Simulated scan of single mutants.
Amino acid sequence: MDLLEYQGKQLFGRHGLAVSDGKAVTTVDDAVAAANEIGYPVVVKAQVLMGGRGKAGGVKLASNEEEAREHATNILGLDIKGHITRTLWIEHASDIATEYYASVLLDRSAKKPLVMFSTEGGVEIETVAEETPEKLIKENVDPLVGLTREQAIGIATKGGADADVIEGVADALVALYEVWIEEDASLAEINPLIVTPDRQVKALDAKVSLDGNAAFRHPDHADLGDKANLDPIEVQAAEQDVVYVKLDGNIGILGNGAGLVMSTLDVVAQHGGSPANFLDAGGGSDAEKVKQAVQIILSNENVKAVLFNIFGGITRCDEVANGLVAAFADLKPTVPFVVRLDGTNDVLGREILEKAALPNVYAEKTMDSAAAKVVELAKESR
C-alpha cells in the first residue's frame, strides 16, 4: 500500500525524523485556516499517489491568505494523470541550502535491507544511478544488527554530505531505517532530504510503501493510503478477499496462483492481446468464489472477452466449472469466455461445462491455444 506524502511524513515524525509543520485538509476554507494557523509562507500541495505534481500545478507557494485561497481553489479537484486531488497538505515553507536523497528498501539479490544515499537530491534517482552512479551510495545492512549510527555516519561520509551535517544525516538515516523496519515498509524514501540554512536536516517529501502482508500487525494502518482514488472494482475485490489489479486492456483474466496468472498475462500479450486485469482466485477456490470473481471481472466495461486458465491442484476443476455455470445463470454475461481446465477433476469439469452448454463458452486444452482464442474473440467483439 502506497501512502500519501502527508501520511508518510506523519510516520516519519513518529520515528524521530524532522518534518515541517503541516496539516491535511479537504476544503478551501480549511486550507486557508490551516495556512493562517501555520504561518506564511506556506506550500499548498496536492496529495495524490503520482509524481510530477509540481509540473501539473499541484504544488504552489502562498505568501498570504489571498494566495492560499486561490491555490487551494485551483488544486482541489485537479486531475493529475488520472488522480483527482481531494486532499491538500498545507505546510510551512522551508528554506533550503542543500538537497540530498535517502531511502531504505529490500535488496532481493542480497536478501538484506539496502540503504541508499546521494547528495543529488531533488531529481529522479534513476537518472543519478544511470548518469553519475558514483554519486549514489548503496550499502547493505545486517538485518540481525540493524542500521547502527556508526554505519549511518559512514554512509553519509562516503556519500559526500557536508561535514557539519554528517551526524544529522546519519540520525535521519537511522530514523528512516526504523520506519522501514517497525512499520513493515517495502520502501521508505526521502527526496529531497534537505539541509536548511541553519543546518537542520529535514524530510521535505515522503514516499512510503507498506507491505500489505504485514497489515495484521498494524491495525493503525487501516485508514492509510489514497482511499478516495481507489478503483471501485479493486475495492469490491478486496472486500471479497479476491486478489485483483485493474489493467488497461480488454481481456479479462482469471487464474489460480499468482505465477500462473502472470504467465497467462504474458502469453495473452504474446498473441497480441491486452489484459484487462490480474485476478488470482487462489488455491482451493470454490464455486461461490469463482462466481464472485466473474462478477468482478465483468464490472470492468472494457472487457470484451474472458480467459479462465486453471491448473487444478488444491483448486478442483469441477468447482471452477460449477462456479462458471452459476455465474452465467445469475449474471448472463454477453462477452465470450475461453476456458482451459487442467489438473484435479479436469475431466469432470469439462463434462459439467459440456452438459451446461453455456452460450459463447469455448474450451481449449492448452494455455497457448486458449490465449490465441481469447485474443481472436476480443478482436471480433470490438
Rank of each mutant, 00 (worst) to 15 (best):
S263P: 09
L298S: 00
D226R: 00
A305I: 08
L260A: 11
D223L: 07
Q270W: 04
L230E: 15
I296S: 01
R217C: 08
G272L: 14
V243S: 15
I310R: 01
D223G: 15
G225E: 07
F308L: 02
A269I: 05
A269E: 05
I233N: 15
F311Q: 08
I296A: 02
N256I: 01
N256E: 03
A222V: 13
L247V: 03
G284W: 04
V306W: 01
G259I: 07
Q292E: 14
E288L: 03
I253P: 10
H221E: 09
I296K: 01
V245I: 14
V261R: 03
L307A: 12
N300G: 07
N277G: 13
E288K: 04
A222P: 06
V294W: 00
V235E: 04
I233C: 12
I310M: 01
N229I: 06
T264L: 02
A214Y: 05
K304N: 06
A222C: 04
E288W: 06
I233H: 12
A237R: 09
S285R: 03
N213G: 14
P219H: 03
F311Y: 11
D220F: 11
D220R: 04
A305K: 04
L247E: 01
V290G: 03
Q240R: 13
R217H: 03
D211S: 00
F308R: 02
G252F: 09
P275W: 01
L307G: 08
V303W: 02
G255M: 02
V294Y: 02
A237I: 09
L307S: 10
H271P: 06
K304R: 10
I253F: 11
G255W: 03
I310K: 04
N302T: 09
V243R: 14
H271Y: 15
S285G: 12
Q240I: 06
V320S: 09
G257P: 14
K246W: 03
S274L: 03
I233T: 15
N256Q: 00
G259V: 05
K246N: 00
L279T: 12
D223A: 15
K304T: 08
V306H: 03
L307E: 08
K289F: 08
Q240P: 04
V268I: 15
V267G: 08
A258W: 05
L298M: 00
A215F: 08
D226E: 05
E319A: 09
Y244S: 10
G249M: 04
A228M: 11
L307Q: 11
A228G: 12
T264Q: 10
G312F: 00
A258T: 15
V267E: 11
L224E: 12
F311E: 10
R316D: 07
E234V: 10
D220L: 02
A281P: 00
D318E: 01
Q240Y: 04
V243C: 12
I310E: 02
V290Q: 05
T315M: 11
H271W: 11
N250L: 10
Q292I: 11
G282L: 07
A238H: 09
D241F: 04
D241V: 04
S299G: 07
G212E: 13
H221M: 08
I253A: 13
A214W: 10
L279N: 13
T264E: 06
F216V: 10
Q270C: 15
A287S: 14
